[in-house]
Amino acid sequence: MTAAGNPAFNAAARPLGGGRRLPLTWLGVVPFFIYVGIFLLLPTAIILAGSLIGPDGSISLSNFEGINKPYMYKSFTNSIEISTISAVLGAIFGALLAYAVATGDPKGFLRRSVMSAAGVVAQFGGVTLTFAFVATIGTEGFVYLWLQQHGIEMYPNGVWFFDLPGLTLIYLYFQIPLMVLVFIPALDGIRPQWREATESLGGNAWHYWRYVAGPLLFPSFLGCTLLLFANAFSAYATAAALLTQGGVIAPLQVQALLTSETGSSAPGLAKALALAMVAVVLVVMSLYALLQRRTSQWLR
């Protein structure tokens, strides 16, 4: 809230009868806070508390020691690896697509269709998305078979599709649209005057991108890449559907602990792992928020 906005707001609200009945005013937000208290804050607290309660019921960090095992560690590095790769590639391709959209008619059919489609596809994941790729480049897939008929074997060195490289490729399917959605506002904030000013001051296209548009867009680009990282890092359904081997990435470890016998014997471990995931995402998202604030100052 801004200092400038509030006094006016309060002063204007008072004639409506707020000042006298302050407790009643607060009643208006009680349902919301009760609700998020139960379904958001309480679960978060359960994760936090549960991760700190050891198998013997005392407060300890022993659950976190459970993470410190090679296969757990590996699942985290795998997660970070595919999240990084899919975020960087998604950001680059998504930024290009966003640029192609932003340079078109802002009210045009093309832009609306692309944005609507991006809205659907960015939320797209799990079984359906996996099917889509299986039907395309799986060993019975349309493109795979078509290439095979033309003498091209897609997997000369073994099928990589059901492993991490395949997962990374599939992630691009929702990463690119997400990038389009979150990066377009920054591109829209670029004013044509800046290019024209650059030109009239003697700069060419290279100068424009090097000194003006590039530096202006970079913080936002970086921020959006971080958002994509968090998005991929949190994704579970697609991996669950595609990967035949369990526990390869962090979310699958969580699943394993939730559903398997070992999990019920160590309830704190799942919570510790969940907390570790939250911590990673929290750090990344805070950086994102920071970069977004910088950008919004420039590109209003």
């Binding site: 968090a230 949190s234 579970y236 969580v254 939730l258 919570k271 995402v281 929290l282």
Partner: peptide
């Protein structure tokens, strides 16, 4: 900032 897979643990 709370991955669904993490939230489900708490919920």
């Amino acid at each position: 900032t709370v991955p669904a897979i993490a939230l489900v643990v708490g919920i």
